[in-house]
Amino acid sequence: MKGRNMTRWRDPAKDPRQEPKSNLITAEGAERLRGILDHLSRVKRPALSAKVGEAAALGDRSENADYTYNKKELNRVIARIRYLTKRLDELTVVGRLPADTQRVYFGAFVTLEDEEGEELAIRLVGHDETDTGKHWISVDAPLAKALLGKSLDDEAIVAAPGGETTYLITEIAYRDPQA
């Protein structure tokens, strides 16, 4: 079968997309996802439904670009609502600090120093709340896996495309989820 639905074959054993993702999320991340779901359900979906209804009332739908666009957008929003509803049911909210705050665990703010002396401040969060702008990385990322369980002044060796990189942990901090 040829066409737009064909993709190249990937070995499932080596495909990183097949790796199981952790179902952890911070309390603020879960609240943000609930807010997005609420906005999509109570604001965006009704507005798009009204637009689709207005465009459909104009007549011929086959040449009605407004109807076609809004219908596609409505379907996209409905799919996102379905995904978020299912995903929120699967997630485990981590709403407490770890017993040992001197080690790197989920939710930690970690400051690293590389071999050249450059600092990198990151936070270990769930897959659904990663943000490159804030330097929040998934707990499933190779760097995060190398850091888990380490303490202050420990070294973490991470395999990178350009070779292995060694990081020194210079600071570990946590934000109290109850605050």
Rank of each mutant, 00 (worst) to 15 (best):
G133L: 06
T85H: 06
T85C: 00
L40Q: 12
L37Q: 13
V94D: 03
A13Y: 02
E115R: 04
G117S: 06
R61F: 08
K72R: 15
R96K: 11
V158S: 11
R175H: 15
P142L: 01
L58K: 14
N75W: 08
L124A: 14
L97C: 04
I78C: 02
R4W: 14
Q178W: 10
D89Y: 02
V93Q: 12
P142C: 02
A99K: 11
S49F: 08
L124G: 08
K71Y: 13
R80P: 07
R82S: 14
V43T: 01
A56T: 05
R123E: 13
D11H: 13
D11K: 13
P12W: 09
F106N: 12
R10Q: 14
H127Y: 15
E115M: 05
P98H: 06
A47Y: 13
K150L: 14
G53K: 04
R103G: 02
N70E: 05
L168D: 01
D114M: 00
F106C: 03
P12G: 03
V125F: 10
D153H: 15
V110A: 07
E129G: 12
G126Q: 13
R96S: 14
R10N: 12
K134W: 04
K44F: 04
D154S: 11
T166K: 10
V94E: 01
E118S: 14
R45E: 05
A55D: 05
I157Y: 06
A144P: 10
D66Y: 02
Y174E: 08
A55W: 07
P142Q: 01
G126S: 07
V104E: 02
E119K: 14
I122V: 15
V77M: 12
S22A: 02
G53S: 00
R76K: 15
T68H: 13
R32T: 06
D60F: 15
A159C: 01
K134V: 07
L48C: 00
D66E: 15
R175L: 08
S138A: 07
L24W: 06
D100K: 04
S138M: 12
R17C: 03
A13E: 11
N75L: 05
H127C: 07
I122C: 12
T130K: 14
D66C: 01
Q18F: 07
N23M: 09
A121I: 06
P20D: 13
W136Q: 10
S138G: 05
A159H: 05
G29E: 08
G95M: 07
G117K: 02
P161K: 08
R175V: 06
K150T: 06
R8K: 14
L24A: 02
K86M: 04
G35Y: 06
E54G: 00
T132C: 13
V43A: 06
Q18H: 08
L48E: 03
T166V: 08
T170S: 05
N23W: 07
L143F: 09
R10V: 02
R17H: 09
V104F: 11
